[in-house]
Structures are given as structure tokens and as C-alpha cells.
Design a protein around this nucleic acid. Structure first.
Lengths: 245, 245
DNA sequence: CATACAAGACTGGTATGCAAGTACTGCCGG
DNA sequence: CCGGCAGTACTTGCATACCAGTCTTGTATG
């Protein structure tokens, strides 16, 4: 396949990153559902790459628990593990709420960042119910921005990793239980509480917001327990066939 | 180099994991100091592997911020970044303290786990000051066990990642400021407070313990600011030569 | 017809080769 | 003696080839 030489390889982002981003997005959006087989060869072919960068992307995804690899058997999108989801919720809550607490102790709000957050909330309010992808993107931006406002933007990577598992669990519900407008309104209230230096109120609102998201997930699990596993990791999967072309 | 065929490759853990563990250990222990050049070829040769598994290990280490790769230039042990260290401290504190709080709400202590923690503390008390490596290993076990006791063992991976940066910063001081026996004693007190269901006290002690570790780091930074960077990542590094064989 | 077995089409793990780019080094000219 | 320039020895990124397993499937046999 020899480069199919176009753009100088240095300018465009690395193939590994392209593969990683592409795969991660598809996994979180459930475009690649839990249990789906991920053949390195097929992925490489569909991305017009060799196996090497695809493998490296898979290694990263294994690291964050979104993919499982069974040597000589296959690679699979990890099942949604209830334990992992709960741990993710715990971590996220701990970090985001503690960050909000710390804001109360050093209440020096950056005006630019605050205004940027207002912009994000405004954009969210303008979304319709079916623009889930855009909403989730802005949701990330909002929560990342909230951390950054408290000077803890560096923890976003860890939170984002947790959030990925939460989002994936939420997506299992055919439709998000909360409506987008409700979530945007919650964001708005949190932000305005922060801006008004009502940090205790903001913390309470943020806790409610995060818990509401989690209770969505628990509702989904109660309704469709078969979508979740609690042991995971011990059971490979028999690949199913079917699919015409 | 063709396998140099001995053990069936399936039985022993994957080469990638061996490379990852080896590298990570050497980086955290500063056996590979910040800024050290990591040639994929050299590493592969010294581990008796090909570049592939070494590369995959490096990709993982880049993911957790312990290694920086500059394409066509080289790979380097990441400098100790003060910002990242502070973020790591924040995350760790948030998770561990929140976990302790949650223990107070569901105070169902597992007797086996508690006893295991006692064993760890006892082992630590038996160490001499120069057995740092063993101490750090037991330290990991203790904090991981404390999380597990509260049912949040799954968050250990994230905490461990943060802890790696903290430990590396601490190691920069030629000698750990706190003595091992003091740290072991702190562990002991925390554990006994937990065992006695004095969770508020335990939380206070744990906070003091974690903060003490961090203030060690800040003392080191104050004494030797040149060991830290705050911007990082923009500056490649000129590799130095010298070294006979 | 059922079952056992063997061939083949997959899997991921590893080794290696090639391409593109950078940095050091030593020579050559002033 | 000093500066510039070319050569060379590195670097990582990616592609490819090979290996050792596993699972499927088709066939031959009882």
C-alpha cells in the first residue's frame, strides 16, 4: 500500500492518532457496540493504514479499558462493566466536586474563561434533541472548562477517561433520559452560581447534575441488565458471522 | 534475532508488558532520569526484543505523561513538570479522601482486607531506611488496599498514574525527607483509626499524610528549582554524548 | 447420517525493512 | 583559526513478512 503518497507525512497528525480518535469516537458513540469484534486487519484496511498504527491505537484503548484483546483469538469492544462505570462515576464526582470546593477557597475567576463557559452553555441551549454528538462535545468542553477555572485543568484527562465509560453506559439507553435542554439548563445554573461566587450552591448543583447523569445510567441498567456485565474480562466471545456486502 | 527460541511465547507475559514494566520502574526510580534519551533501538537491544513491543510500551508511557516523543528526533523521559505534579496531587487527594469519606457512610469493613492492610503496615515497619524500592511497593499496596476497603479499588489505576508523578518528584530529593518509619507510622495510625470506625479522624490523618508527601515535593522544588519545568513539552532536548563502553 | 479429522482462513505477537527527517562531525575554504 | 557545508549516523513512523496459535469448515470414514 506504500504511502499512496500524497501529503508529506509530517504535516498531518500521526496515523496512530487518527486511528485512535476514530476508534474511540465510534466506541463511545456505540457505533461500535460492546462486544463488537475489532480485527486489526479490517480496521487497518478501512482506515487505509497498516496494522502497526492501528495496533498502537488499540494498545491505548486497552489501557483505558475500552477494548479487550485475547491473543490469537481476537480484539473486542469491551462490554459495559457496571463496576467500572460505578468507579468512573466515583472518580469523576470526587475530582469535579473537590475542584469546585477548591474554587471557593481561591475565588479568583478568570473573566475570559468564564465568558467562554457562557458561550458553551449558550451553544448547548441552541441545540435540538437529536444533536447528541454535538451536545456531548460541548458537555466535555463545559466540564473541562469548569476544572480549568479552578486551576485543575490538568486533571481533565483522567476525568475524560472516566466520562467515556459513563457516556457509553448512557448511550445504551435508546434515548438519553434527561433532555438536552434540561442538561443545558443545569449547566447554566451551575455556571451562574459560580460567577456569583455562590460556591456552596454551585457545588450542590454540580453534585445534583452529576448524580442525575448517574441515575440515568442506573435506570438503564435496571431496565436492561443484559447490557451490562459485572465480571467481564474472563469471557471471550464467539464472533458471529452474517453480514452481506 | 529470530526468537532465539526458548520458551513458547504464549506462556510468558507479553514482551510489551515486560518492556512497559521495566521502563516504568526505571523511570519512576529515576534510574532513567528526566530528560534521558530513550532510543527504541537501544532499548530493544538491551531487552532482547524487537522495536515493536518497545514502541508499544513507549506509546503507553507517553499516554501517562512519563515519556515524550519528538518524531525523527528522539524519545525522552519527560521532565518533572511542576504543574503536572500539582494536578496529580490534587487528583490523588480528591479520590483518596473522598473514598475515605464514603467509608464513613457505608462502614462495612471487610475483615480479610483489614488484616491484609495490617500485614502491609507491619512489613513496612520492618524495613530499613535504604530499602526504598520495597517501601514504595508496599506504599502502593497500602493505598490501593485502602481504596479497595471502601469499594473503590477500581480507581487505583488512575491514582497510581498520579502517584507515579508524585513519587518521581519525591525521588528527586537525594533522600526522602520523611523517614520510612515515620511514613509507616502514619499508615499505621490511619489504618487503626479506620479499624476503630473513627472515620473522621482517619480522614484527617490521611489528609495530613498526603499533604506531608506533597510538602516534601515542594521543599525539593524550592531547594532545586532547576529540576522542575513548568512549561515542558515545547522544548526538545539536546542529547548529550559521552559514555564509554 | 453422524462424527472425527485435517486443511485452511483467520487471530494477534513479533521481527524486520524502508522512508523521511534531524543532528552531529569532520573536512574544506577563507 | 574560524565558518560553512556536506556526509553520515542516528532518530521515529509506518509497512510488511513471518510465526504460532485458534476456530471454522469441508470431507472422508465408520
Amino acid at each position: 500500500m506504500v504511502n499512496m503518497g500524497q501529503i508529506p507525512a509530517t504535516r498531518r497528525q500521526s496515523s496512530r492518532l487518527r486511528a485512535y480518535d476514530s476508534l474511540r469516537r465510534k466506541i463511545i458513540s456505540l457505533e461500535l457496540p460492546p462486544g463488537a469484534a475489532l480485527s486489526e486487519n479490517d480496521l487497518a484496511a478501512s482506515l487505509n493504514l497498516s496494522r502497526t498504527p492501528v495496533r498502537e491505537a488499540l494498545v491505548l484503548l486497552v489501557g483505558e479499558g475500552l477494548v479487550q484483546v485475547f491473543p490469537k483469538i481476537g480484539s473486542f469492544v469491551a462490554r459495559v462493566d457496571a463496576t467500572r462505570v460505578a468507579d468512573a462515576q466515583f472518580l469523576r464526582e470526587a475530582v469535579e466536586l473537590t475542584s469546585m470546593k477548591s474554587l471557593a477557597e481561591h475565588p479568583a475567576l478568570d473573566a475570559v474563561q468564564t465568558e467562554a463557559l457562557r458561550g458553551i452553555v449558550a451553544a448547548q441551549k441552541g441545540l435540538s434533541q437529536d444533536e447528541q454528538e454535538a451536545f456531548f462535545h460541548l458537555d466535555d468542553e463545559f466540564h473541562r472548562g469548569l476544572l480549568a477555572l479552578a486551576g485543575h485543568g490538568g486533571t481533565w484527562a483522567a476525568v475524560a477517561q472516566a466520562k467515556a465509560h459513563l457516556d457509553r453506559a448512557r448511550m445504551l439507553g435508546l434515548r438519553i433520559v434527561d433532555t438536552i435542554s434540561e442538561l443545558a439548563e443545569a449547566h447554566s445554573q451551575i455556571l451562574e452560581a459560580v460567577a456569583a461566587h455562590h460556591f456552596t450552591k454551585a457545588e450542590t448543583l454540580l453534585r445534583q447534575h452529576l448524580r442525575a447523569v448517574f441515575s440515568d445510567i442506573e435506570a438503564i441498567r435496571a431496565a436492561s441488565p443484559e447490557l451490562f456485565v459485572t465480571d467481564s474480562d474472563a469471557v471471550p466471545v464467539r464472533r458471529t458471522i452474517a453480514v452481506w456486502e
